[in-house]
């Protein structure tokens, strides 16, 4: 079970990030999780939103450079070593992680982790993780 993540190219210049976020606000799109990866000259804003298709369309219309990527959302119990266990599962299978970010779920004591693995490994990663962890659907990320 994979969920859709939006990635938006953000030039390092004043007001760019707020311009992009304003497009989402104007279209009543709710952000559930985000991370920003930055380099000296540009950043990539990664977003999990309530309506990724609509967000994609609106951003695209506004001439933003945006794409939709499949990522894995995993619920990890909030205890020492929880994330390490999940990573062990992946590394045992030789699956590498391109990037990840976490946020705290409002409803239970789980942390939610968004994982990006190489596209070819998506299925296998979901398989091995689902043995011990809860794979979250987009509805479950609140």
């Amino acid at each position: 079970m994979l969920i859709k993540q939006l990635s938006v190219f953000v030039e390092n210049k004043k007001g760019r990030l707020s311009a992009i976020l304003n497009i989402l606000r104007d279209n009543k799109i709710d952000i559930r999780a985000l991370s920003v990866a930055d380099t000296r000259d540009f950043g990539i804003l990664r977003l999990i939103v309530d309506d990724p298709e609509k967000a994609y369309e609106e951003l695209h219309k506004a001439a933003c450079l945006v794409n939709l990527t499949s990522v894995i959302a995993v619920g990890i119990t909030d205890r020492p070593g929880g994330l390490a266990d999940a990573m062990d599962c992946l590394s045992a299978e030789g699956i590498s992680v391109e990037y990840m970010y976490a946020f705290i779920s409002k409803t239970d004591d789980c942390a939610s982790v968004i994982l990006r693995v190489p596209d070819k490994d998506n299925e296998k990663a979901v398989d091995v993780l689902s043995k011990d962890f809860k794979i979250l659907s987009s509805n479950e990320i609140i």
């Binding site: 190219f9 380099t39 000259d41 540009f42 990037y99 990006r116």
Partner: peptide, 18 residues
């Protein structure tokens, strides 16, 4: 200007293009 087909969510790929 980056074009759609050049853009990726992974920093490394974009830096590779550069």
């Amino acid at each position: 200007e980056l074009s759609d087909n050049m853009f990726s969510d992974i920093i490394r790929s974009v830096e590779d293009i550069e």
